[in-house]
Each structure stands twice: as C-alpha cells, then as structure tokens.
Design a protein around this nucleic acid. Structure first.
Length: 347
DNA sequence: AAACAATGCAACCGCACAAAG
DNA sequence: TCTTTGTGCGGTTGCATTGTT
C-alpha cells in the first residue's frame, strides 16, 4: 500500500505555472526560505500541491540555475558520469553546478541517448554480419521517415542520401538472409546510427558483406557478451573511444587494439571509472560498467578481474596491421576515425 | 496551408527513505 | 517499534513547438 498523497488534490491547479504563480512562489521563498513544502502553498496563497511548488522552485525559479544550452564540457561530463552512475540524475547534477537533475535527465533522454550508439545485438543475431545488416535495415527504415520535426540539435547530421531504401536493395545487400527475425531498431537507435557514422557508397555494400567474414570468436568476445538490465547489449560511447584511441599502435597487441572493453569491478578494488566520484557510488557487490578511463588510456588492465573484448565491429581481420576497415566498409585511417568520433562526441 | 508526426521540456506520479512523533 | 509526515528521486506523461510532406 502506498503512502497517502502529499496533499489534497481537489481544487488544486495543475499544469503549467503562470508568471503570477512564479512570482508568488519566489516572493514567498525569498521571504521565508525553502522547505515546509507541504504547508507552503497554503501559506503562500497558491493553489498548488507542495510537491509541485518544490519542483517548480528547484527546477526553474532558483536563482542559481544556469540558463542556456548545455555546453560541450557539460555534455562530456554528463556522458562520463552516466557511464558510471547510470540514471542517478541527482548525483550527476551534483557535478554540474546550476543544472538540475530534471534538466540533465531530459537532456539525456532527448539528446545524448540518441548520440550514444546503442547497438542492439541479441542472440537472434547468428553472426556479426547479421548485426551489420540490421544496421543497414535500420537505416533504411529510418530513411522512410515521413513528416516530423528534425532534431533541434543542429549537431545531429542528416542522413546521407545513399541508403538502401527498398527491399530489393536490401536483398542486394544481404542476399535475402537478413529478412528473418531481425529485431526492430528503436527510433533512437536509428537516429543514433544515422548521426554517427558516414554512409558508405551503396555500390560497396556487396563487397562489404563479403568482407564480413568475421574472425572466429576470441575468448570472451562478442559471443558471450554481457547483457545489460534492459536485456540488450549496449554499445556505448566508451566502446567507440577505446577503438578510437587504440591508435593502431604497434605497441598495442591485438587484444588491446580496437577492442571494446568491459570490466567487472567490485566495490573493494577502490578504482572508479572516473575521478572524483567517491567510492560511495558503488553500492552493490558487483556492478558492470564501462570503464571510461580504461578506454581512454588504451585498455590497460585496471580491475584485473574480467575483461571482454569485442573487436569485430572495428576490425575486419585478425592481422591488426595498418589502417583497418571498420567492418562496414569504409576505409578510414585510425586518426581519421579518432578525430571524427571525438569531434562528434564533443560537438 | 493543412495535416502529420517527432521533438523537447515542464510537470506529474509513485515509490523509497529518513526523521519525527 | 510502529505510524505518520516530509522530502527527494527517477520514470513517465502531456502538450506546445516545429519540420516535413
């Protein structure tokens, strides 16, 4: 049984706040201070629920709130913190002065979640090839979009023209094999896909598919992936970064270069994915998380417990020498990829 | 110009938790 | 110890806005 409602809802006003209500609330709090939200509306003469007053004050009226768009620096912080803390918006907000948890949550849901390449790979994928084919199918579906407003975020680029649009073209791409049991790709993911990676020329696709004879699974590779709490494997920012910073350096061995790394950390290892978070953020005995610094720094073993590497998306061969094809058919040298991804992430 | 549909954000809701009685 | 109250948090919803057809 839930608790009683915070206030009598009968006769209370709901919906958007008027300027007059804002003024009343502001005046009252300036005179009497925050707190006692339950009694505040009555005392202030507002026909609002106490919780509504609190929310309005915290999220909108407070004088120390920062106005304007989230900066690139703030965005980077959000992404990093989210990678470690998950949806703990209030904790994330603590690191962003002037920003509210609600604002960050909204920003995440509407901007960042579509930037983060959320790549669904379920057991229905018999091979990485199918996953990549799903990538194209998703793009084709996204391309069918009819009306609708484009994102207000100018940083999200539009879909390039050369995208398979018909089922015939898709057959051309996948030989008809991809028509079965392909999980649908949510809109966010479709947009993420379209906004992150330049499209290869369609004429190269057959060749692309041919090149997708992926290396046999390495120990701990994509064949035994960890599944997040939504039942899908997420391919996150960190994954991309570690690839981008793999640098193809001869100093990096095959298991490090171009890999995607997850770590299993316990709360005793004293190592946090990002600095200055405080060990209190780890509440469970085990948490799976993307290791940002590890990714940035080229995949050093930090936790020493478990490490999964998923390199197929980036590599298309085992040699790991020289510039690598990212497995979906566009040749970019590592620096180009690095720059493109980092620029995009920070844009 | 109208209809449609995606987007973004303010606001709401239910739950958890801590403090007070 | 139990109940009540106050507060905070994260998920979700509603709707104004706006781009596309």
């Amino acid at each position: 049984m839930g608790r009683a409602p915070c206030c009598e809802k009968v006769g209370l006003k709901r919906g958007r706040w008027t300027a007059e209500e804002d003024q009343i609330l502001t005046n009252y709090i300036q005179a009497n201070g925050e707190g006692s939200w339950r009694s505040l509306p009555k005392n202030a003469g507002l026909l609002r629920c106490g919780k509504s007053c609190r929310l309005r004050w915290i999220n909108y009226l407070r004088s120390d709130l920062k106005r304007g768009n989230i900066s690139a620096e703030e965005e980077e912080i959000i992404v990093k913190l989210h990678a470690s803390l998950g949806n703990r918006w209030s904790m994330i907000a603590e690191h962003l002065p002037g920003r509210t948890d609600n604002e960050i949550k909204n920003y995440w849901n509407s901007h960042l979640s579509r930037k983060i390449y959320s790549f669904r790979r379920t057991t229905e994928f018999a091979s990485p090839k199918m996953a990549v084919i799903d990538f194209f199918k998703a793009q084709a579906a996204a391309n069918k979009r009819r009306g609708g407003r484009m994102s207000r975020n100018k940083n999200i680029s539009k879909i390039p023209a050369k995208v398979p649009k018909s089922s015939e073209q898709m057959k051309e791409i996948d030989g008809g094999n991809a028509a079965v049991a392909m999980p649908s790709t949510p809109n966010l993911e479709k947009e993420a896909l379209s906004s992150t990676i330049p499209w290869p020329d369609l004429s190269t696709l057959e060749e692309v598919i041919e090149t997708l004879d992926m290396p046999s699974p390495r120990p701990g590779s994509c064949q035994d992936v960890e599944v997040n709490n939504e039942g899908m494997e997420m391919m996150c920012l960190d994954d991309i970064i570690v690839d981008a910073n793999g640098n193809s350096s001869p100093d990096h061995n095959e298991s490090e270069r171009g890999t995607i790394t997850t770590r299993k950390c316990d709360n005793n290892d004293g190592i946090l994915p990002i600095d200055n978070l405080g060990s209190s953020s780890w509440e469970n005995e085990f948490e799976w998380d993307w290791e940002w610094d590890n990714a940035i720094n080229g995949g050093n073993e930090v936790c020493g417990q478990e490490k999964n590497t998923y390199s197929w998306l980036w590599d298309n061969n085992e040699s790991g020498e020289g510039d690598c094809d990212n497995g979906i058919g566009f040749e970019m040298d590592t620096n180009e990829k690095h720059n493109a991804i980092v620029n995009w992430l920070l844009s």
